[in-house]
């Protein structure tokens, strides 16, 4: 049965695509698109001798990524202008942070929503400013969803901009409040680093902690190959910095994220040959192979495979997110809503 290994191989060792036949290229492109990694692949293949059809597809992808990057930075600037008068630190997260900071993880990366982290105490003021001065408004949600976000989540319900049609996710911590680990968001903001325009990014160790938390605890590994690629590129950028690995170990402990960070490191090493520190990554575990199987669950058509394993990870993601009784209540409400919607 085919899986996404050709994509992993092409990203890790672009020159290895030299032996692909047309069917191999076709599959590679479909997988890269499905995993939101086409822009990344296009940049990795830059300068290599590829078939004309592939070169055209890559050129299109690069154009589209350039456009997305410009839009993402503009959204960040719009938020900065609205929030600057509050005098609160605004930390960019994920894709926008990578491109704003010029990190390798930002090269070719597709960027969706704008994600920012602010102090929990500042949440109300930030929300008010975005809506009153910024032109953002609530995405139409039902009452249950809204209350759920506000009581249990690590972010506000998503806001969308009236004119620009772009979403902003305002986080006040890294994981849902109902999850077991309690990352120290205040410390993350404290240690964050200022960019030239006053917006901030997480410190290198915290950036890895956040990426790892995002990869495992906050999702069902959907988009996992892309999120793991982020981690690979970040680690390669930070690898040479003095004291980085020791700091990563300490911060992961402090945020109660030692396990997800260690697992992310091992998976990155397995799939992308990432240089990792053995002390932080720890020994490989039997479960690692399941993660690899889940991450690679794509066929030559870009379709999802291994449905059972996907479902297992989906259920697990909810399990990690909330205690059992609450999970049961949540799924019941969601199921009832869906049944109602379908009928």
């Amino acid at each position: 049965m085919s899986d996404a290994r050709p994509l992993v191989r092409a990203l890790t060792d672009p020159a290895s695509t030299g032996d692909l036949d047309p069917a191999g290229w076709t599959a590679l492109i479909a997988m890269a698109r499905a995993e939101q990694l086409m822009g990344t692949l296009a940049h990795r293949l830059d300068g290599l001798d590829v078939p004309d059809a592939v070169a055209r597809i890559c050129a299109d992808a690069r154009l589209s990524i350039d456009h997305g990057r410009r839009q993402a930075l503009w959204e960040a600037e719009m938020a900065r202008r609205v929030l600057a008068p509050l005098g609160e630190p605004v930390v960019l997260l994920k894709g926008t942070a990578y491109v704003a900071a010029g990190l390798s993880a930002g090269v070719g990366r597709s960027i969706g929503d704008l994600d920012i982290l602010v102090r929990r105490e500042a949440l109300d003021a930030v929300e008010r400013a975005l809506i009153a001065q910024g032109g953002w408004e609530w995405v139409k949600e039902d009452e249950y969803d809204d209350a759920y976000y506000r009581d249990h989540m690590h972010e506000l319900p998503p806001l969308i901009h009236k004119d620009r049609d772009r979403m902003i996710d305002v986080h006040h911590t890294v994981l849902p409040l109902t999850a077991k680990p309690m990352p120290d968001a205040a410390a993350m903001i404290e240690e964050s680093e200022a960019l030239d325009d006053g917006l901030r990014i997480l410190s290198p160790p915290d950036m890895i902690c956040h990426a790892a938390a995002h990869l495992f605890a906050d999702g069902d590994l959907a988009g996992g190959l892309r999120n793991l690629w982020d981690i690979d590129r970040l680690l390669r950028d930070f690898d040479e910095r003095d004291g980085f690995w020791a700091a990563l170990g300490e911060r992961a402990d402090r945020h109660q994220l030692a396990k997800p960070v260690a697992c992310a490191l091992r998976l990155a090493e397995t799939l992308y040959e990432t240089p990792v520190d053995g002390d932080v990554a720890g020994k490989s575990r039997a479960g690692d192979a399941l993660y690899v199987r889940r991450l690679l669950a794509r066929d030559d058509w870009g379709g999802e495979t291994r449905k059972g394993l996907r479902l297992a990870f989906y259920i697990r993601s909810h399990w990690l997110r909330m205690p059992p009784l609450m999970l049961a209540r949540h799924l019941w409400t969601k199921w009832r809503g869906k049944a109602h919607h379908d009928s």
Binding site: P22, R33, A53
Partner: peptide, 12 residues
Amino acid sequence: TPEIPDFTVRLF
């Protein structure tokens, strides 16, 4: 008939 298509469509 193209060798390497620009787009993939799936009916499933």
